[in-house]
Amino acid sequence: MKPSITVVIPTHPFRVHNGMLARAVDSIERQHLTPDDLIIEVDKDGLGAATTRQRGLEKVTTEWVAFLDSDDWMYPEHLKVLSAGARAHKATYVFSYYMVHRRDGTPWPEIDPLGHFGKAWNPAAPHQTTITTLVRTDIAQRVGFTDPPPDSTVGGHRGGEDWHFTIGCRDVGARIVHIPRRTWAWVHHGLNSSGLPDRGDAAIR
């Protein structure tokens, strides 16, 4: 049976105008496993990624929710690979890995400086993940997104709302599994926030 999936993309006016959002949406439309819904939340009032993502999450009614930042994109197999991985491992939170691309879409040399690709998730010693995940909606909505306090760390990482969300999912009993495939593009364009509310192009209006 085809799983029911909603994709949530938080964005802000800068990425609407510069074409990044359109590229992200195009990647959703090209998925081999078509999602049931796409929710785009635009941060028009400057409240930040956590609040914007939370607004989108609250509207989800499907069994699963997938997250994507508006400056990145999914490869066509992304949702199919994650869904199959969730089913095979009886997981409730799955994440794959990325290739780094420049803003113009060309790839950087394939590097993995932190050595996390293919590393099994260990809830007792978690390694940092990204927001590009597939999660059971009931778990995601139970945990939700909030801005972490300045300079707060979890599991040795400062990370932003996405990392705190991951740890929250762990703490409520989510079965988190890493799928060792590179199925999406992380775009390095010089204004990335890396999940931190005090960085990036979110402040550009």
Rank of each mutant, 00 (worst) to 15 (best):
E63C: 00
D72T: 05
M74Q: 04
T61Y: 03
R53V: 09
L79S: 08
M74Y: 14
Q54D: 13
I39N: 12
P76T: 08
T52V: 13
E77A: 00
E58D: 13
D71H: 04
Y75A: 08
E77N: 04
K44E: 15
L57G: 06
I40V: 15
G48T: 03
P76D: 00
G46E: 14
W73S: 05
D71I: 01
V65G: 05
D43H: 09
A66F: 06
R53Q: 13
E77F: 00
D69H: 10
R53G: 13
M74C: 03
A66D: 05
L33F: 09
T62Q: 11
R55N: 14
E77P: 00
V81I: 08
D36K: 08
L47P: 03
F67R: 03
E77Q: 06
L79F: 07
V60P: 03
R53W: 10
T34C: 12
I40R: 13
L79C: 00
G48H: 09
Q54P: 08
D72L: 04
V65C: 09
R53N: 12
A49L: 10
W73I: 04
A66E: 05
Q54N: 14
K44T: 15
D37R: 12
G46D: 10
D36P: 10
K44L: 15
L57Y: 02
E63N: 12
V60L: 06
V65K: 02
G48K: 06
T51C: 12
T61I: 05
F67T: 06
T62D: 11
P76K: 05
A50K: 06
D36A: 14
L33C: 09
P35K: 05
L38M: 12
A66Q: 07
I39M: 11
I39E: 13
M74L: 15
A50L: 02
Y75Q: 08
S70I: 06
P35V: 08
W64E: 02
D72P: 02
T61M: 04
T62F: 08
W64G: 05
W73G: 06
R53H: 12
L33Q: 12
R55V: 11
T51K: 11
K59L: 15
Y75R: 03
